[in-house]
Design a protein around this nucleic acid. Sequence first.
DNA 1: AAAGAAATGCAACTATGTTGCAAAGAGTGT
DNA 2: ACACTCTTTGCAACATAGTTGCATTTCTTT
Lengths: 136, 136
Amino acid sequence: METKEEILAAKGVKATPNRLLVLDALSKYGSPVSVAELEDQLQTVDRSSVFRVLTLFAEHGLVHAIEDGSGAVKYELCHGQHECTPADMHVHFYCDNCHRTICLESQPIPEVTLPEGFEARTANYIIKGLCDKCKK
Amino acid sequence: METKEEILAAKGVKATPNRLLVLDALSKYGSPVSVAELEDQLQTVDRSSVFRVLTLFAEHGLVHAIEDGSGAVKYELCHGQHECTPADMHVHFYCDNCHRTICLESQPIPEVTLPEGFEARTANYIIKGLCDKCKK
DNA sequence: AAAGAAATGCAACTATGTTGCAAAGAGTGT
DNA sequence: ACACTCTTTGCAACATAGTTGCATTTCTTT
């Protein structure tokens, strides 16, 4: 398996203690994480540092940001080696009841055709409702 | 044409001065509006009132909320008489440069199949990138 | 080792969203 | 018309997320 250092290097990001910690924490979650959650888990790292690391990661295509409407942006590791284009991304589900954000990995975001002159860089497709556990 | 009062009544919302003002402002915009923008335009109405009116409208299916990642939730009038189900909604485009949110009315949100036990209520599909004006 | 650049932590600050409460207003029944 | 109740509204306060400036520390380079 690739080391964390290699993962960072592959995207052109220099390894630092904080970056390795954040990367480690991200990879332990199966679902998108908010800055606040990362901050809780990484008690030694300041919020602004978490924020800066995530911003840097996002710029280098290591993570993508997901706005699920919970008020806080959540971050998720990109799985592929390639860039996070809309076509690479999958749909997310946000449960109005338990406020979890779930990745629907099997559902790539369906493409839509943009009007002339528009250029897509990223896409966010979030479905909201009740998850299987909360529906019961 | 339907009066504002009739529009509200049709959705089971009692008409009040502030609600009519907010509805009026919403209908003048062609694109989703943030609470801050509405507040600017409706100098006489307090922010909390704008917020409460929009929340009420959203509950009654008069508007739907769009999270475009700008940090502020934007609201848009529902066009149909029916409820705002995912199938009724359209895709939005957010320009990273000029920070405008544009409705792609012609693009209904493509359906995806949810895993067993999940129930969809609303959907948000946002494409980000550069709009035609900023691309040039 | 010294100089410069990058990263980090701290604190402050802005913007957005939200709530409690009292005053004003609308509606109801007598 | 009056008293009573419920709703709506504005104000102020607060909560949370996001962001920035700056000094200190750490890393790199020469």
